[in-house]
Amino acid sequence: MLRSKGLTVVDVYQGWCGPCKPVVSLFQKMRMEVGLDLLHFALIKDEALAEEGECFSRVKDDGEDEDVVSSGKTCTLAIIKPDAVMHGNAEEIVMKIQETGFDILTNEERTLAEAEMRLFYQHRAGEDAFEQLLHHMCSGPSHLLILTRTEEAEDVVTAWRNLMGPCDPDVARREQPDSLRAQYGTAMPFNAVHGSQDAAAARRELLLLFPSFTFSDQGTEAAPEKSPKQILAS
């Protein structure tokens, strides 16, 4: 961490400390404003250390782990957009994702901030519909999912994009009527779901929306969690 370019912040807190949790969101907002390469942070929580880019375990009072990302699986990002959530379709979409053979490592409901969406969609900043897209994505709660697959016959990024269908719901209804966008989308940009374009985009988007997500050297894989002793020794 000390060899990383920019500033490294270390935050130490206990899982029972409610007021400490918003500080993590504050760090995330600061990181987006300053730049992903210039601000890094490490979290020490419940005696378990997780460096920036590594998944950390959120431990409940009963000692059970919560929201722990599994290890050794290729992952991608899925977003159930505000239009699908508003129409009450989120749970049904989640069920169809699972029925199609995906494992959901994380399912977090969150209203996305404009600052993070401007960074998220910066590659589309020159498009005429850019501001409409930002307004839509920040208009209400979304479901943010980290997906993987038990069966590796088809990589998870491609499999998720195939399940979503064409970007335009009208095109999806003509070409892939069983796809999620055909069933739950209405018209652009209200196409119900988002998926990463490729493995590189998945890595970038997961790092942006899940700053403590673990990446292996092989790409968008959730790396095995380390014990505090292993991390301190590395």
Results as ranks from 00 to 15, higher is better:
1 M>N: 09
2 L>V: 13
2 L>D: 14
5 K>Q: 15
8 T>E: 12
11 D>W: 11
12 V>R: 12
14 Q>K: 00
15 G>Y: 03
17 C>T: 07
17 C>D: 10
18 G>I: 12
18 G>W: 08
23 V>Y: 10
23 V>L: 10
24 V>G: 01
27 F>A: 06
29 K>L: 00
31 R>Q: 15
32 M>H: 08
33 E>T: 08
37 D>E: 15
39 L>I: 04
45 K>E: 09
45 K>V: 13
48 A>R: 15
49 L>R: 02
50 A>M: 04
51 E>A: 14
52 E>H: 14
53 G>M: 03
54 E>S: 13
54 E>W: 08
55 C>K: 03
56 F>L: 11
56 F>Q: 07
56 F>V: 04
57 S>L: 06
57 S>M: 03
59 V>N: 05
61 D>T: 14
64 E>H: 14
65 D>F: 13
72 G>V: 04
74 T>G: 10
76 T>W: 01
77 L>V: 01
77 L>G: 01
78 A>C: 12
79 I>P: 03
80 I>A: 03
82 P>E: 08
82 P>Y: 08
83 D>I: 12
84 A>T: 07
84 A>G: 09
86 M>I: 00
87 H>G: 12
89 N>Q: 07
90 A>V: 03
91 E>Q: 06
93 I>A: 06
93 I>W: 01
96 K>A: 10
98 Q>T: 06
99 E>Q: 14
99 E>T: 09
101 G>H: 03
102 F>E: 01
104 I>V: 13
104 I>G: 04
105 L>S: 10
106 T>E: 10
107 N>V: 00
110 R>K: 12
110 R>D: 05
110 R>I: 05
111 T>E: 11
119 L>P: 00
120 F>R: 02
121 Y>T: 02
125 A>S: 15
125 A>K: 15
129 A>Y: 15
129 A>W: 15
129 A>F: 14
131 E>D: 11
132 Q>S: 12
133 L>H: 08
135 H>M: 03
136 H>Y: 13
137 M>Y: 03
138 C>V: 04
140 G>V: 07
141 P>K: 09
141 P>W: 01
143 H>F: 01
145 L>Q: 03
146 I>M: 05
146 I>W: 03
147 L>Y: 04
150 T>R: 14
152 E>T: 11
153 A>S: 14
153 A>Q: 13
155 D>E: 06
155 D>T: 01
159 A>G: 06
163 L>S: 05
164 M>A: 15
164 M>T: 07
166 P>E: 04
166 P>F: 04
166 P>Q: 02
167 C>D: 10
167 C>T: 14
167 C>R: 11
173 R>I: 05
174 R>W: 08
174 R>H: 13
174 R>N: 14
175 E>V: 10
178 D>I: 02
178 D>G: 07
180 L>I: 13
180 L>Y: 04
181 R>S: 12
183 Q>Y: 08
188 M>K: 10
190 F>G: 06
192 A>K: 09
193 V>M: 06
196 S>Y: 06
197 Q>P: 09
197 Q>C: 12
197 Q>M: 14
207 L>R: 05
207 L>F: 04
208 L>F: 07
213 F>Q: 03
214 T>I: 00
214 T>R: 06
214 T>F: 02
217 D>G: 10
219 G>P: 08
221 E>W: 09
222 A>R: 10
224 P>L: 03
224 P>Y: 05
225 E>W: 07
229 K>Y: 10
231 I>L: 12
231 I>P: 02
232 L>D: 01
